[in-house]
Design a protein around this nucleic acid. Structure first.
Length: 913
RNA sequence: GGGCACUUAGCUCAGCGGUAGAGCACUACCUUGACAUGGUAGGGGUCAGAGGUUCGAACCCUCUAGUGCCCACCA
């Protein structure tokens, strides 16, 4: 016997264990060898991660799809795994070492450090996988992969070497986004722009004193947000100046030119002259370059080619020197005046301002709003820095990746995300893939004594190449850098299947069916998988890309620990059960929207689970046992004919919703059917049958209830796998415990069950009961009181109907007697349900004044509707041009309203006379 | 500067060309033999504003006003 209340915490671990022992999620089950494969690769969570709401949503949706397709008989592979997450993981381990006061990584060396990271991974890396299991994720866990696995590392090696051979990976010296905290290059995508606004204002022309102490105090809090105007003296006439503006004063030490627009007449005479760079004393040229905008600042711009992306280009065009003034920590270094060397960039900034002012060369300080690049992980200001790095020629690889979406080989759902994808792909920049970290795939490049580079699959191969190159054996050293984490992620759809080995899984499951992910990683991940997949497999990595919403807090902001607005999915699971959380996420996953999650919503769906639980309890108590030979087509009792038809409708809606990735519609249809139709009506309507003594009807109804409940458990299983699996096991089949598990049961494919006549009749019963209840409530007839009902002017058909459903109507509407009369008795409340009129003849119980008021209100409402119908029908254009069905519907509605008004008016008249 | 969305019941959100919906919250009644994590009934919306297209617009188009996000730039 089922417990009275559903206890998710009690059943979930048991169900999980059952799935595991049945190996229910194994791909490539022998009996499905001929089945069509269905494959999803999981967006690999960071190995350092723990489950947040975004993961919960993402994996719930994937699981819904996988369970749905598994039940439809497909050979499902949901490929799980984790990502080594270069910077994040290295950070975690370094922080741990610092906390334990152990020597830092540079002290212990690369090899020892990597050993520690692996040890950490073995110990703590499995957290998120276990959390995914608690959510119910039906991944084939036997195939779990890690981006640093031997196999996946081999794929990385193969891809790097091939792309290098093809000239699509190359080494280049150019400006990169340098993260001074982690001392590594990062890609454009890992840079986030943070707005800075200053407040300090000073102008030398006013004669006002400059309060340096106040400015410095401000700059200590936020070094950005101000524009500084500097006077640069002309070399041939130090009494004349050209004024330049900058938000980064310290970079002036690396200036190698001043640019003006070629057509800017203010400066024409100065082009070709030189200025003396203040504080440094170096003479630098004034050049003409289109980059300079006469509208902005003073129209003259200082050029620092080694520390600014635009200036780099200007310098290249005008042949200016590049002087690097920063080291890897963003401290001043190299060819800078003695006093500045070794200063931090922001300390140098203050010092420069003070020194320029002292030299009388500071013209103005004004507050401004500008964005400052920050590292997305380190949160420190990024410096453009000139270094050697490895790049992927992304523009070349993007060509087919763009075409594949244009011609529909891969489809975005919702479709308009393809615009975002195109936008970025068509303007793509070279992808900087080298990172100055230790944790990651080390770049397979070796250098000879003179710096000549040899890229090869192994050190031995590289040595061979070097020997050929030099004509003798030489010492080679390996490039210490590792690859961007997203480089290995880009290979995920085929590396996890066994490539570059000749793995049968690649043939069977690639291209994968659908990728499910959030829009925040379209560039980071989706685009790069498209490029790599197409290049190495000649086929798209996935046919569909379903982009889901981001889970945000109530203000629409991304949930984050630092903001303190996180809702922990595991806490929700503990409190309400995994099924409730999953159902909530699926029900809210409308396309293209953000999800602002609320606890009450989860609670509501927990209640839904309880409702289902109790409906099953009811079935169990009433011995509703699934019959082996039960055929829903064969039922004879009208109620049963009706419910099998409703079941078919629900099954179709859920199926169509899931096929179209409309998770919310599928979940909504299932919810409405289970609660609103099955529980609210069917189970109530059959109670008289189950308690009656019509044995054949009883037997059919029991079998039918068991059958419908089975369909319900199946339809809900993708959304609520735990409770449905538990109830499935409880429901007796052919008089014994069930042998199979729901996860591997067959999805309902129902057809031909809908019975128009049954639907009409039960609809009539429901309508009548609802009307009686409504009138009772409005007339304040005590809920417990049983009252008689008079059916007025019934024809033979209605009399027969009433006869068939008398018990049910009496029970649900709390009646003690149903009789037939030609006219409604005096002093009765009148009920109009469709074409049936009824009355509750309890003069004593009914306040006739209230009844009169109620009738008037109902008449008014009906008349208002009727007026709308009439207006439509009186409009010749509507009758002539609207769809015939629309006109027909309007007429029907008008007739219906006419009838209602006539009956209600008659009742009203009787009261008033 | 370029792009993409959004504005519907007190709250959170569906609906996207033919009688305004859900969950929660609210009101009244109900220990009715599955369920008070429940039942029954009910209140509550000129679908941001203004134009237009259409027989008909919350839904399509244009504009306005707010809000959010992405990309780029920033002397």
């Amino acid at each position: 016997m089922l417990e009275k209340t559903y206890q998710p915490a009690e059943i979930e671990p048991r169900i999980t264990a059952g799935w595991e022992s049945a190996q229910a999620f194994r791909a490539g089950r022998p009996e499905r060898a001929d089945a069509e494969p269905y494959c999803i690769v999981i967006p690999p969570p960071n190995v350092t991660g723990s489950l947040h709401m975004g993961h919960a949503l993402n994996n719930t949706l994937q699981d819904v799809l996988c369970r749905f397709e598994r039940m439809r008989g497909r050979d499902v592979l949901w490929q799980p795994g984790t990502d080594h997450a270069g910077i994040a993981t290295q950070m975690v381990v370094e922080r741990q070492m610092a906390e334990r006061q152990e020597p830092d990584r540079r002290t212990i060396g690369r090899e020892a450090f990597l050993k520690k990271v692996w040890a950490w991974k073995e110990e703590s890396g499995g957290t998120i996988v276990n959390q995914l299991k608690r959510l119910g994720a039906s991944c084939d866990w036997s195939r779990e992969r890690f981006t640093m696995d031997e196999g996946l590392s081999k794929a990385v090696l193969e891809v790097f070497v091939s792309l290098h051979e093809q000239g699509l990976i190359y080494k280049d010296k150019r400006l990169v986004n340098w993260d001074p905290r982690f001392q590594t290059a990062i890609s454009d995508l890992e840079v986030v722009q943070v707005e800075a606004t200053g407040s300090f204002k000073w102008d030398s022309s006013t004669g006002e004193e400059l309060d340096l102490a106040a400015l410095n105090k401000l700059l200590d809090k936020n070094p950005s947000g101000h524009m500084y105007h500097f006077r640069y003296p002309l070399a041939d006439d130090p009494t004349r100046f050209i004024v330049v503006a900058t938000t980064r004063p310290e970079t002036m030490l690396g200036d190698t030119g001043v640019a003006v627009h070629p057509e800017d007449e203010r400066y024409t005479a100065l082009v070709g002259k030189r200025v003396v760079l203040p504080l440094v004393g170096r003479e630098i040229p004034i050049v003409a370059d289109e980059y300079s905008d006469p509208e902005k600042g003073t129209g003259a711009v200082k050029i620092t080619p080694a520390h600014d992306f635009n200036d780099f280009e200007v310098g290249r065009r005008c042949g200016l020197d590049r002087i690097n003034i920063l080291d890897e920590h963003a401290k001043l270094t190299g060819d800078v005046p003695e006093g500045y060397r070794g200063l931090d960039r922001f300390a140098a900034r203050k010092r420069i301002i003070a020194d320029m002012h002292a030299a009388g060369l500071l013209a103005k300080i004004e507050p401004t709003t500008h964005t400052v690049p920050h590292g997305d992980r380190s949160n420190v200001v990024i410096e453009p820095w000139l270094t050697d790095q490895w790049y992927v020629n992304a523009a070349e690889l993007a060509k087919d990746a763009i075409a594949a979406v244009e011609d529909g080989r891969t489809k975005f759902v919702p479709e308009n995300w393809s615009k975002t994808y195109f936008e970025w792909m068509r303007n793509i920049e070279p992808w900087c893939i080298s990172r100055q970290l230790w944790w990651g795939h080390q770049i397979p490049a070796w250098y000879g004594p003179d710096g000549q580079v040899f890229v090869a699959r192994s050190e031995a191969d590289a040595a061979k190449l070097a020997n050929q190159h030099y004509g003798k054996a030489v010492e080679i050293t390996r490039d210490p850098d590792v690859l961007d984490t997203w480089f290995s992620s880009a290979l995920w759809p085929f590396s996890t299947l066994g490539w570059p080995e000749k793995a049968p899984e690649v043939d069977r499951y690639y291209p994968t069916t659908v990728l499910v992910t959030g829009f925040d990683i379209i560039f980071f991940w989706v685009a790069r998988m498209m490029m790599m997949g197409l290049h190495f497999q000649k086929q798209v990595p996935f046919k569909d890309v379903y982009i889901h919403a981001l889970v945000r807090d109530e203000k629409g902001q991304k949930m984050s620990k630092s903001k303190g607005n996180v809702m922990d999915p595991l806490v929700m699971i503990d409190e309400y059960g995994a099924d409730a959380l999953r159902f909530t996420l699926a029900a809210m996953a409308a396309q293209g929207r953000d999800i602002k999650l609320s606890k009450q919503r989860v609670e509501g769906y927990r209640n839904f689970a309880t409702k289902l639980w109790n409906a099953s309890r009811f079935a169990e108590m009433n011995e509703c046992v699934r019959q082996r030979d039960f055929d829903p087509r064969s039922v004879e009792v009208t109620l049963n004919r009706w419910i099998v038809g409703e079941t078919e409708k629900a099954a179709k809606e859920v199926t169509e919703g899931l096929e179209a990735y409309k998770f919310n519609e599928a979940a909504g249809s299932a919810y409405e059917f289970v609660w609103g139709v099955f529980c609210d009506w069917y189970l109530e309507l059959i109670k008289p049958v189950l308690m009656g003594d019509d044995e054949p009807a009883k037997a059919e109804t029991r079998a039918c209830t068991a059958w419908v409940l089975d369909q319900i458990l199946k339809l809900l299983h993708p959304f609520m796998p735990f409770i449905t699996e538990e109830l499935w096991a409880h429901m007796v089949e052919h008089g014994e415990k069930r042998q199979n598990i729901l996860t591997l049961a067959q999805w309902p494919v129902l057809d031909g069950l809908y019975d128009e006549a049954a639907a009409e009749e039960i609809g009539w019963v429901i309508g009548l009961i609802s009307e009686i209840r409504s009138v009772r409530s409005e007339m304040n007839i005590p809920a417990g009181a049983k009252v008689p009902l008079v059916i007025v002017g019934a024809d033979k058909a209605i009399k027969q109907r009433v006869g068939r459903h008398e018990d049910t109507i009496s029970r649900l509407a709390r009646l003690d007697d149903i009789t037939f009369e030609k006219a409604a008795p005096k002093g009765a409340a009148v009920i109009v349900a469709g074409d049936t009129t009824a009355a509750i003849p309890l003069a004593g119980l009914i306040d006739m004044e209230a009844e009169s008021k109620r009738l008037k209100k109902e008449i008014a409402a009906a008349e208002s509707d009727l007026a709308k119908m009439n207006a439509k029908l009186d409009n010749p254009a509507f009758v002539a041009r609207a769809k015939p069905e629309a006109v027909e519907e309007t007429k029907e509605r008008k007739d219906e309203l006419d009838g209602i008004i006539r009956k209600l008016s008659a009742a009203l008249k009787r009261i008033e006379t």
